[in-house]
């Protein structure tokens, strides 16, 4: 059984850690370190978007970067045109969510099976990537913003205070705001998962036929789940764009989709805290390994992905939990207190 959010100590610990980092980090660390950590925060939001749809909706998307990129480009184009960032930031949630709903309609109302779903999401991402790469000429501009093809869009505005376009956030404020967003997304998803809607979606993940026989509209549920995940991914894209003040078509790349999958798998499908730890650990790892001459990013990602899949015996979620418990004790000490993995895993 899923524990009510209000009674789960893990939930409070996570939020507490989050708040501690949010207010503590700017005091303890220098500016450079803060900007590094900001990157992890943004990617954590992105990881949460896939963690939600895969872990709690049973939708394995190979194209999460499609929405990430869409959010990033939405933010870039609209903020350059409008000159302030509050509305574009909201738009970067709404537009990918709407696109996710539209794509979800075709996929889920067509009752595509898992393989087809994986292929369609991947191909959609590929096509976005191709089209955006193709937009190098000056004729491809939306308002004042040139899409720039493979050169990307430079000088994307930094977030400003709502209503005051000249009050830019400094890096520490940006970090606090992003950390705040991460906490909000985490709490929001936890509450959503614990709600009736969330219980039904977990039920659908466990047994689609039974859920529909019990009278739940599986297709509608999946579309909504997918749209929410897409919106969060889009928001993460906007955060990424404003953090870097630059975005290029690599936001749409397969590498970016693969990373999300790897983080979620590494951290544990069916958890929310796991993927965040996955981001921190694996980004740090690839930063370290990336400095080696004889390796490149693709080799590292591919190897990690294959090892993760092959090293896990039958039954993905329980084995991830088991593996996480034994292998990553020091990172996940908190979970020891919880009883061993059950059929329907709890949502920590």
């Amino acid at each position: 059984m899923e524990k009510p959010v209000a009674k789960d100590p893990g939930f409070y610990i996570m939020v507490l850690i989050g708040l501690l980092i949010m207010f503590g980090a700017p005091i303890w660390f220098d500016l450079f370190a803060i900007m590094q950590v900001t990157q992890y925060v943004v990617l954590s939001v992105y990881a949460l978007s896939l963690a939600y749809i895969w872990g709690f909706g049973g939708i394995l998307s190979f194209g999460q970067s499609c929405f990430f990129g869409l959010g990033a480009y939405t933010f870039a184009v609209s903020s350059i045109n409008i000159g302030e960032t509050t509305f574009p930031f909201i738009l970067s949630f709404v537009l990918p969510a709407a696109f996710g709903a539209a794509l979800g309609y075709f996929m889920f109302y067509g009752r595509l099976s898992d393989v087809y779903l994986g292929v369609v999401t991947m191909v959609v991402t590929l096509i976005f990537w191709k089209i955006i790469n193709h937009t190098a000429g000056p004729e491809y501009s939306i308002g004042d913003a040139r899409l720039g093809g493979f050169n990307g869009i430079p000088s994307i505005p930094i977030l400003n205070m709502p209503g005051d376009p000249d009050a830019w956030l400094d890096p520490a404020q940006m970090f606090k705001f992003f950390m705040f967003l991460l906490i909000v997304v985490y709490i929001g998803l936890r509450v959503l998962i614990a709600s009736d809607f969330g219980r039904v979606s977990v039920g659908i993940r466990e047994n689609e036929t039974r859920s529909s026989l019990l009278g739940y509209d599986v297709r509608r549920h999946k579309v909504i789940i997918f749209a929410i995940g897409s919106g969060i991914a889009g928001m993460a894209g906007a955060m990424w764009a404003t953090y870097q003040t630059f975005i290029d078509p690599n936001a749409f790349s397969l590498e970016m989709s693969a990373k999300a999958l790897i983080w979620v798998m590494a951290g544990g499908v069916g958890t929310l805290a796991g993927p965040i730890l996955g981001v921190i650990l694996l980004q740090w790892l690839s930063l370290k390994l990336g400095t080696l001459q004889f390796l490149n990013n693709f080799v590292i990602l591919g190897a990690i992905l294959m090892v993760l899949v092959l090293a896990l015996p039958r039954g993905l979620v329980p084995s991830v939990k088991h593996w996480a418990l034994t292998g990553w004790e020091m990172f996940r000490r908190r979970e020891r207190a919880a009883p061993p993995a059950k059929e329907v895993t709890s949502d920590v």
């Binding site: 898992d114 693709f298 591919g302 190897a303 294959m306 899949v309 092959l310």
Partner: peptide
């Protein structure tokens, strides 16, 4: 061979292979 009957896992594993091959050939 290890992934028959686990369709999603076979997708993930072959995708890992794909990235690995791109990286390996580049090297």
């Amino acid at each position: 061979r290890f992934l028959y009957g686990r369709i999603l896992d076979s997708l993930l594993a072959t995708w890992g292979l794909s990235l690995l091959m791109i990286g390996g050939v580049t090297l």
